[in-house]
Amino acid sequence: MAFVAPPGYQPVYNPRIPYLGPIYGGLREGMSIYFQGSIPEDITRYFINLLCGESESSDVALHVNPRFDGWDKVVFNSRQNGSWESEEKIRDMPFSKGQAFEMIILVNSQGYQIKVNGQDFHTFSHRIPVERVCALQISGDVSIQTINVIGVRRPVTAGAHLPPVPYSSMIPGGVSPKRTIIIRGMVPYGADRLSVNFLVSRSRDIAFHLNPRLGEGVVVRNSMTGGRWVAPITMHPCTMIVFVSQMSIRCGNQKFKVFVNGQHLLNFFHRHQPFTEVDMLEIEGDVQISYIHF
């Protein structure tokens, strides 16, 4: 039976701008919104709004507005009852014309912490309770490739988790042919490496070690038996360099198959026999996990 993820975990790819869409389940402290996009050469300005309703006239809890107008700046604000409040102008421009960017809005107890290309940029203090936010609006001179809400409000299907890293869990029922494990999350800008291990719990043998080394630009695949690593296999990681929204690891009779964002990335032929002894999953390194489905 095919697995369909709940709507709150679905990333948005290549949305048409202007964009207006819901944030399923709303926001809360500890969540974050990830944007991957690019700025055109002829940009004037664009904005991102966190809305308290699903219409353009709704209250705005956060307004992020980069302006390229000769006095380049980013303006932050909020709007209540149809009236804009006091602006916070940051006369610094972290975005570059003609360049790609990554932006993360992290929700904390103080406000919205904005990071651009891995660097802290500004924190906008809460003026409206974050629990009222239920929609996202984007308009202006910008191209967006990915929007992903990390750490959704609550799991809505069996098998869903919001786990810390490092992560370790038994795989209910163990690994079997045609079984697929789905991992969703975010690899932040500037991350170095992460690892996903499929283990035999009783021996601690690692049947499949998947190790994207982002700083080196390779993915290492390996196994460990009796405390010793076997000769690794490496390859270029393609779509895993900066951001992973979904990784699926499917077990077959001969090999593990790894897919990233629906695209086949690599295979790893079984070295541990029988592979059906694999019954544990471990995840470590530079990754923020939003969802795991066994």
Score class of each variant (00 low, 15 high):
D279G: 09
Y24M: 08
N267Q: 13
I233S: 12
T225D: 06
P66M: 00
Y13I: 10
V244Y: 05
E284A: 06
R127E: 06
S57D: 14
I138A: 05
M235H: 14
W84E: 07
S139P: 00
D286R: 03
L162A: 14
G98S: 06
S57I: 13
V75Y: 02
L266W: 10
E216K: 01
Y46H: 12
K178V: 09
L210G: 00
P177K: 14
Y34C: 14
R16S: 15
K97R: 15
L210R: 01
F124Y: 12
M186D: 06
L281D: 00
V130R: 00
V142G: 03
G37L: 03
V12E: 08
S83I: 06
T146P: 10
I241A: 09
H126Y: 05
I17A: 12
H126D: 05
M103L: 09
P232K: 13
I90S: 09
V218I: 14
Y19S: 05
D286E: 03
Q137R: 08
V187L: 07
F68P: 02
I183P: 02
V175R: 07
T239K: 14
T157Q: 14
F101A: 09
Q113W: 02
P6V: 01
T276H: 13
E131T: 05
R16P: 11
E131A: 11
M170E: 15
F76D: 04
Y167R: 03
R184F: 00
Q110K: 10
S78W: 02
G262L: 09
S248V: 11
A61R: 00
E54D: 11
N77T: 05
F259D: 04
S109H: 04
G151N: 14
W84T: 10
Y19P: 07
V196G: 02
V220N: 01
R228N: 09
S78V: 02
I128N: 04
H293L: 13
K89M: 11
H126R: 08
R132P: 01
Q137Y: 13
A191Y: 07
A207K: 07
K89V: 15
P232A: 05
K178T: 11
Q119K: 15
M280F: 08
M31F: 03
I90Y: 02
V64I: 15
I283H: 00
Q137L: 07
G285Y: 00
G262N: 11
V230W: 10
E85S: 13
D92K: 15
V242G: 04
S83D: 03
F101S: 11
G37D: 06
P166E: 08
R271I: 12
E29W: 01
S55H: 12
Q10P: 01
I182E: 01
L199D: 00
T146V: 15
I183W: 07
R91A: 14
R45A: 07
L27M: 12
P232N: 06
I43H: 02
R193C: 06
N267W: 10
P94M: 05
P18Y: 10
G226D: 03
D141T: 05
G190Y: 09
S78D: 05
P155G: 07
Q145P: 03
G159K: 10
D59Q: 06
D141Y: 01
